[in-house]
Design a protein around this nucleic acid. Structure first.
Length: 112
DNA sequence: AGCCTGACTCGGA
DNA sequence: CTCCGAGCCAGGC
């Protein structure tokens, strides 16, 4: 479908991030075929209040939280992640090489 | 239609 | 390691 709903696609991907794992804005954008739409992804997260979307599992490319303090209410993103077993270093960063979510191959569009 | 902003990212100083 | 500037995308005014 040519239908817009870029946001919808973003949520669809974010919903697939399992607990204890994180993804970056750029990673999601790339999965959607828009490697330069990272900002839009972040915006989609902020715009959405959908509880089924684990927005807290999305951090920036540096493994750092970009939304800390931006939210008026609710638990801090970092707290939610630590609850899932994710560890932060002294600078408040996540080791992406250790916790970054690895999206499944999904339906191979082109079987060998 | 045009201009500004933003939960981003990368490259250079 | 931190700071700055430019590129990209979609929405609000």
């Amino acid at each position: 479908m040519t239908t817009d709903a870029f946001f919808g696609r973003v949520y669809h991907v974010v919903r697939q991030i399992p607990p204890g794992r994180v993804a970056t804005y750029g990673q999601i954008a790339r999965l959607l075929g828009e490697p330069h739409a990272a900002r839009t992804v972040g915006w989609a997260m902020r715009a959405s209040t959908d509880p089924t979307v684990p927005w807290h599992r999305v951090v920036n490319a540096q493994g750092r939280i970009s939304a800390e303090g931006t939210r008026r209410e609710g638990p801090l993103q970092r707290a939610l992640l630590e609850e899932e077993g994710i560890d932060f270093d002294a600078r408040g960063r996540v080791d992406l090489g250790l916790y970054q979510w690895r999206p499944p191959p999904e339906v191979s569009p082109r079987p060998a």
